[in-house]
């Protein structure tokens, strides 16, 4: 098996300006934030971002001018509010949104993964999402005589960015028993390249003890980087919960372009490694109480 170990810098050098990047994320959960920070540090430009439900990652990428298109179902930090920098950029016309429902996004990625021109769904029929997106969504007569369905054109990301609990050096990727959102279930299979950060890189022997927990086979993975707290400030169950204070601090900074930029300078552009980032954030160890809090009963 080929070794896939890389640094954050080497991994993100695989992403080219203008590419379509699929990002694991669910509001305040499970985003590969170390990779997001590296996209900003390397000053990527004109990326299209695919998210199921994007959170702070989308807001940072919007504030830093990295993305000019968003393909996704929603963007929100839930209890911490709308992503303001993203919102302002859309309202100013700097980011173009291709809004899709979840089943439509899944169909587009599913078609991409299976090398089909499209997959149909019944979701979103009757909505304005269809008229807004004639290049990718078309009503289609059922060839077997039933009601029309919505044909969703294949979507093939140039690269998928995901975070995982552990991986081996060959890029075999394991998740602990957890909620598996569609971005883990389909984005990496649809993408041309896959970049993974993992809380820990382990010996393959460790993976062999629980092969049912291995979700991505190493042969589809291009780079794997060990990044403890790689999803911070989003949660990564069962390892750690979301960082409320950090989310609030960003939500406040994001009200204004200057304070947003200062925040990103401080936490994203200045730290040159994950350790320096964690040091800048402060004590993150208390976030790890999630496991005992959720399982002790």
């Amino acid at each position: 098996m080929q070794e896939k170990i890389a640094t954050l810098s080497e991994a993100i050098e695989l992403v080219g300006d203008g590419q379509v990047v699929a990002l694991q994320n669910m509001a305040t959960q499970a985003a590969p934030m170390a990779l997001v920070r590296e996209l900003i540090r390397q000053q990527k430009r004109d990326l299209a971002l695919i998210v199921l439900v994007g959170g702070m990652a989308v807001d940072w990428l919007a504030a830093a001018g990295v993305i000019d298109r968003l393909i996704g179902a929603a963007v929100s930090m839930e209890q911490f509010g709308l992503c303001r920098q993203y919102r302002y950029a859309v309202e100013a016309g700097r980011i173009k949104v291709e809004e899709l429902s979840e089943s439509v996004l899944n169909a587009r990625l599913g078609a991409g993964a299976r090398n089909l021109p499209f997959l149909p769904t019944r979701g979103a029929i009757g909505t304005d999402l269809i008229a807004r997106n004639p290049d990718n969504l078309k009503m289609l007569d059922d060839p077997f005589g039933g009601h029309p369905v919505l044909a969703c054109r294949a979507l093939v990301p140039d690269v998928a960015l995901v975070h995982a609990h552990r991986a081996d050096r060959y890029g075999n990727v394991q998740y602990e028993p957890t909620i598996l959102w569609p971005d883990i279930g389909i984005m990496p299979m649809a993408a041309k390249r896959v970049i993974v950060t993992a809380e820990e890189i382990v010996d393959t022997e460790i993976l062999r003890r629980n092969p049912d927990r291995t979700r991505l086979p190493g042969f589809i993975v291009d780079a794997v980087v060990e990044v403890p707290y790689g999803a911070h400030p989003t949660s990564f169950f069962p390892n750690y919960t979301y960082d409320s204070g950090f989310h609030r601090e960003w939500a406040e900074a994001a009200r204004d372009r200057a304070t947003a930029t200062a925040f990103i300078d401080r936490y994203v552009r200045t730290p040159s490694s994950q350790q320096e980032y964690v040091d800048a954030v402060g004590d993150v160890s208390e976030l790890s109480t999630i496991q005992t809090a959720e399982h002790s009963g």
Partner: peptide, 21 residues
């Protein structure tokens, strides 16, 4: 104007599906 909205809301998420199925 969808491309220059007064307010960009979070987005439909799974709701557009639930309304049609």
């Amino acid at each position: 104007d969808y491309d220059r909205p007064q307010v960009r809301l979070p987005g439909t998420a799974g709701l557009a599906d639930m309304g049609s199925i």
